[in-house]
Amino acid sequence: MPYPTNADLPAGVRNHLPPHAQDIFRAAFNHAWADHASDPRQEEAARRIAWAAVKRLYVRDGAYWVPR
């Protein structure tokens, strides 16, 4: 289930990531979703890839994420 806008992201992503990181998560998730269409674990793979993309530019500081 790709996310058309940041408002459609899961609450945990929306509430803790800054807008730019949400953009990164959404773009990576949507791309990975399409790339893994034949994978039975499509959503899990897309979610892991999206978080990995966020972690390249952001680091967790308590409950929130801040730029590296």
Results as ranks from 00 to 15, higher is better:
Ala28Ser: 11
Pro40Tyr: 05
Trp65Met: 09
His16Leu: 03
Asp61Gly: 11
Arg68Gln: 14
Trp51Met: 08
His36Gln: 09
Gln42Asn: 10
Gln22Ile: 05
Val66Trp: 06
Glu43Tyr: 09
Asp39Ala: 11
Gln22Thr: 07
Met1Thr: 13
Pro40Ser: 07
Val54His: 04
Tyr64Asn: 15
Ala46His: 02
Arg48Asn: 13
Ala21Met: 03
Gly62Cys: 10
Ala27Asp: 14
Pro2Ala: 07
Arg48Lys: 15
Ala28Ile: 01
Lys55Asn: 13
Asn6His: 07
Gly62Pro: 10
Ser38Asp: 14
Val66Gln: 13
Val13Ser: 01
Trp33Glu: 01
His16Gln: 11
Met1Asp: 14
Val54Asp: 02
His20Lys: 12
Asn30Lys: 01
Pro67Ser: 09
Tyr64Val: 15
Asp8Asn: 13
Arg47Cys: 04
Tyr64Leu: 15
Val59Leu: 14
His36Ala: 13
Glu44Lys: 13
Pro40Cys: 02
Pro19Leu: 04
Arg41Thr: 11
Arg56Tyr: 08
Ala28Thr: 04
Ser38Lys: 13
Asn30Ser: 01
Ala11Trp: 05
Ala53Pro: 08
His31Asp: 13
Asp8Cys: 11
Asp23Leu: 05
Pro4Thr: 04
Trp51Gly: 00
Ala32Tyr: 01
Tyr58Thr: 06
Arg14Gly: 03
Lys55Phe: 10
Asp23Ala: 09
Arg14Val: 03
His20Cys: 04
Ala21Ser: 03
Ala11Met: 08
Trp51Ala: 00
Asn30Thr: 05
Asp23Ser: 10
Arg60Asp: 02
Arg68Thr: 12
Ala28Met: 04
Arg47Tyr: 08
Ala45Phe: 09
His31Leu: 14
Trp33Gly: 00
Ala63Trp: 11
Ala28Tyr: 02
Ala37Ile: 09
Glu44Met: 12
Phe25Thr: 00
Arg26Trp: 00
Thr5Lys: 05
Ile49Gln: 15
Glu43Ser: 11
Ala45Asp: 01
Ala28Gln: 03
Ala52Thr: 11
Gln22Asp: 06
Asn30Val: 00
Asp61Tyr: 15
Arg60Tyr: 05
Glu43Leu: 08
Ala28Cys: 08
Arg56Ile: 12
Arg68Phe: 12
Ala63Tyr: 10
Ala32Asp: 00
Asp8Ile: 06
His31Ser: 14
Asp23Gly: 10
Ala52Val: 04
Arg14Asn: 03
Leu17Ala: 07
Trp33Phe: 12
Trp33His: 07
Glu43Gly: 05
Gln22Asn: 07
His16Phe: 10
Pro40Ala: 06
His31Thr: 15
Ala34Tyr: 12
Val59Asn: 13
Pro19Trp: 02
Ala34Trp: 10
Trp65Val: 06
Ala11Ser: 13
Trp65Pro: 07
Phe29Cys: 05
Trp33Pro: 00
Ala32Asn: 05
Ala28Trp: 01
His16Pro: 01
Ala37Arg: 07
Ala37Leu: 08
His31Trp: 09
Glu43Lys: 12
Phe29Ser: 03
Trp33Ser: 06
His16Thr: 14
Glu43Ala: 12
His36Gly: 04
Pro18Thr: 00
Asp35Gly: 14
Val59Met: 13
Ile49Ala: 15
Phe29Leu: 04
Ala21Lys: 02
Asp61Lys: 15
Leu57Val: 12
Pro40Thr: 06
Thr5Met: 03
Thr5Ala: 07
Arg68Met: 10
Phe25Arg: 05
Pro18Ile: 00
Leu17Glu: 07
Asp8His: 14
Ala32His: 03
Ala7Arg: 12
Glu43Ile: 11
Asp23Arg: 07
Asp61Pro: 09
